[in-house]
Design a protein around this nucleic acid. Structure first.
Lengths: 181, 181
DNA sequence: ACTAAACCGTGAAGCTGTAGACGGGTCAAT
DNA sequence: ATTGACCCGTCTACAGCTTCACGGTTTAGT
């Protein structure tokens, strides 16, 4: 049986955080001492370990509780969080662009600030990539992060229609139907 | 002269937001009507336009005030925010990885929708790029579109400091001082 | 037995930025 | 003058904690 501050130290949390979790019904101690002290069991410890990792993944206290209570709807909550993270990252990247532009106003100028398709291809060719290597790279991109692949193609100024074409043959190439054959 | 809700609508903000800005001394109306209503001048409107764009870049109210008051330390605040964004993105990517691992346990799915440094390098390697080719590619990127190079590196979640390092040796490599010698 | 340090519980307030409720004021049309 | 539709200022609440204050408890050392 652990007392609250012991448990907090063990997980690098603040005592108040555990008090808060208790108050929110996320983690209640399984017992109390004679003096009314919270006593956490070994099972509580394991539950807390799970809680900590879910919270590290960015789940809210509410979501974490849902995952731990229902147990079955877990995947859907996690997937929703994954989607939310994507949105957050895109929002931050928009902020990056905004700031980069603000900072550029004072310093520098002249060279283009974004890359188009031709420039990109030229850069890859300069690095020794041939058509087949690029096909492989597209396929890999499509396989690992389809959303990001789409976003990237759009950022090169490629039309949405054409991105669809590229992505389709990227997916096909990944299945072994490589374009050059 | 605008009244508070008019101004809020004009900028797509909530009335309470302007009330808050007034309370925090970020934007105080330059006058009051007989009935005690806040009245915003044309100058206030311009100031608000600036405020909105800084806030869109993710500056806190406090930081925004600092930028608008001091005027000269502007760049340093913006750069600090840029660094903070990088850190936030990396934190989110860490959450992505964590979630992807959690989800992969039960089912395959939930691929990340943005790319980080490791994924990017892995994709290029899969396409047959070696270290030297990547160095060439960076050099080419830096030569043709330094700003875009910077933005691209940031989008991978690389810290601003590290992007400076990469860009410096990219520039050096382009001058013939290639890293492999 | 006594004291000091370290602990405990409860309760409240503070943080950011926004949203909403509340009661009263303003304004056009009747 | 009165109705109704807005509008205003002020106050409270939200997440997810942290910090602070108060007073009781345990523990170690003398």
């Amino acid at each position: 049986m652990y007392r609250i501050s012991q448990l907090a130290r063990k997980f690098g949390l603040c005592r108040s955080t555990l008090l808060y979790y208790d108050q929110e019904g996320l983690l209640s101690p399984s017992g109390r001492s004679d003096a009314g002290y919270r006593l956490y069991s070994e099972a509580d410890l394991e539950r807390l370990a799970a809680i900590v990792s879910f919270r590290k993944a960015g789940l809210s206290v509410e979501e974490t509780r849902a995952v731990l209570e229902s147990e079955e709807g877990e995947a859907s909550v996690l997937r929703k969080r994954l989607a939310a993270i994507g949105a957050e990252i895109r929002a931050l990247q928009a902020q990056q662009h905004l700031l980069a532009r603000m900072l550029r106003v004072q310093s520098e100028g002249g060279l283009p600030e974004s890359v188009d398709k031709e420039t990109w291809v030229a850069m890859l060719r300069a690095a020794g990539m041939d058509d087949q290597a690029m096909a492989t790279w597209h396929a890999e991109f499509e396989r690992r992060a389809p959303q990001a692949h789409q976003a990237f193609l759009l950022s090169l100024g490629i039309s949405e229609q054409e991105t669809q074409v590229i992505r389709e043959w990227s997916a096909a190439a990944a299945d072994g139907v490589s374009p050059q054959r």
